[in-house]
């Protein structure tokens, strides 16, 4: 029995071993390994989502690929969630994170945020026209569908006191909205615009009735000590170029995202 236990423990340990050379300089480490590991979303269309072959694609994936190409290494993507992405980065399991991450002061204490930010979203709701919503205060006491872990959930529920029904993923929440389980679906405004602009007849009687609120910048995250190291500088340079060349606006078009005013303004500012 003892030998079986030893063998089992041995097997578990062997499975778990992943050579983890934590070099000081991330660029050197990545180049030596020939691969950069990037934390991405695989359940957030069109930023990062799956195709049927299991490949992850999307707006953020294109940016990650460009970083890998610039370094001349292969891109390895690790799907992350809002709950584990900063932890993975700190642990060194990923070298960089580009996963619809909002740039907040609290997060800046843990993660290096690359500026200029590659996107800015704001909060709005998708609601049936028949609901007749006019302003945010109309949500008070009414049922609002939302998605777990979204940064705007807390702010909206504190300010406007709706009855929040939280779902694990976007399709579940949208289904609930269509089933009249809630009066509105709380989400990122550009995505709502894209959904409505898609011409899908199932959304013909829906609208985005409220003024967008709480603009939130999204950022690529690196480890804090990488922020002012060559890796962070490289990413900042790339980000400036993405803005200047209009690359980000082009990517928005490619992935069917409504052009966000933030990108247009930043492009003007940098030129």
């Amino acid at each position: 029995m003892k030998s079986i236990v030893t063998a089992l423990v041995g097997a578990i340990v062997a499975f778990g071993i992943a050579a983890e050379a934590r070099a000081q300089d991330t660029i050197a480490k990545v180049k030596q390994a020939g691969v950069i590991v990037v934390g991405v979303k695989n359940d957030y269309k069109p930023w990062g989502f799956l195709d049927p072959s299991g490949k992850i694609q999307g707006f953020e994936i294109d940016l990650a690929q460009e970083v890998a190409d610039k370094l001349g290494v292969k891109l390895e993507m690790l799907p992350v969630t809002a709950a584990n992405r900063m932890e993975f980065l700190r642990q060194g399991r990923i070298d960089m994170v580009i996963a619809t991450m909002g740039d907040t002061p609290e997060r800046r204490k843990q993660v290096g945020m690359i500026e200029p930010n590659y996107y800015a979203g704001a909060t709005n709701v998708l609601a049936p026209k028949s609901a007749g919503l006019k302003n945010w205060a109309d949500l008070k006491g009414r049922k609002v569908c939302a998605v777990q872990g979204a940064y705007y959930n807390r702010r909206v529920s504190q300010l406007y006191a709706p009855e929040m029904i939280v779902f694990p993923a976007v399709p579940d929440a949208l289904k609930a909205l269509q089933g009249n389980n809630c009066v509105a679906f709380l989400f990122d405004n550009t995505l709502i615009v894209s959904t409505l602009a898609g011409g899908d007849p199932q959304w013909a009687n829906y609208e985005m009735p409220l003024p967008s609120e709480d603009p939130q910048l999204w950022a690529i995250g690196v480890r804090l000590d990488d922020l002012d190291a060559p890796f962070g500088k490289l990413l900042k340079d790339m980000s400036v170029n993405w803005h200047k060349s209009g690359h980000l606006v082009a990517l928005e078009k490619k992935w069917g995202i409504e052009t966000s005013p933030y990108l247009v303004e930043t492009q003007k500012k940098l030129q």
Partner: peptide, 13 residues
Amino acid sequence: RAALVAEARTDLL
């Protein structure tokens, strides 16, 4: 879930 997100069709749920 990821497949549902990619398809963006609630009828598939």
